[in-house]
């Protein structure tokens, strides 16, 4: 999957931001280091960015920077877990996760009063998968332990959750994002979930009170 790239010059022109802002956001970790792709061009070295991702991100920063400080924004974009705990009741009341997802999760995570960010994320992703209509509740139940067990191993690295199906048998995979994967024929990719994007959404929802 080849991503479309945009050069720094074109990016600045397109979005109207300045070098100073771009470097400032980079310093504040609003733009991840992996997005700065250095390539040699005829004018010397040039920096390129994955076009869609950087445009989305800059759009968000520009729209939200009046309401939130840069540090708060950085916190939202970072894949790091937030130190929070929240009760399931509140999650359902605030419409962050659905009742059925929380019911399914309960048996795996335990009926603890307070959920950590990681556990909340897990339920949130399950909810998202169920909402897409691509997976059944039973499959969701196999996803939960997979995610809970292995997500920690990625630390703060970006990862992707993939659901494969072949001849009715479903398999969940958690892989680092950016890498290419190929499968034998007959395997169907049912769902790809970009975990950092999920984290971002969840943080945004948690922050909005």
């Amino acid at each position: 999957m080849e991503e479309e790239l945009i050069s720094k010059k074109d990016l600045l022109e397109l979005t109207g931001i300045s070098y100073g802002q771009l470097y400032r956001w980079k310093r504040k970790n609003l733009l991840p280091e992996e997005w700065f792709i250095r390539k040699s061009a005829f004018t010397g070295q040039e920096t390129f960015f994955p076009k869609q991702k950087i445009l989305d991100r800059i759009d968000k920063i520009v729209n939200m920077k009046d309401d939130l400080s840069l540090d708060e924004l950085a916190d939202m974009f970072s894949p790091a877990s937030k130190a929070i705990s929240i009760s399931m009741k509140e999650l359902i009341e605030r419409n962050i996760v659905s009742l059925s997802a929380s019911k399914a999760a309960e048996s795996y995570i335990g009926q603890s009063e307070m959920y950590t960010f990681e556990q909340t994320l897990c339920v949130y992703i399950l909810d998202y998968c169920l909402q897409t209509g691509e997976i059944s509740l039973d499959e969701g139940k196999t996803m939960l332990p997979t995610f809970l067990e292995h997500y920690k191993k990625f630390k703060e690295q970006q990862c992707e959750l993939i659901l494969l199906r072949k001849m009715g048998v479903s398999v969940f995979l958690l892989v680092p994002s950016g890498g290419e994967i190929h499968f034998e024929s007959g395997v169907k990719i049912i769902l790809r979930v970009d975990v950092p994007a999920m984290i971002e959404q969840l943080k945004l929802k948690l922050m909005a009170i």
């Binding site: 720094k8 300045s18 070098y19 100073g20 470097y23 004018t43 010397g44 070295q45």
Partner: peptide, 17 residues
């Protein structure tokens, strides 16, 4: 090799771009 900024004032500097 490369320098980028909003306001730049330079003395005694060797740079490509």
């Amino acid at each position: 090799s490369v320098m980028e900024g909003d306001h730049i004032y330079l003395e005694n500097t060797i740079a490509d771009i």
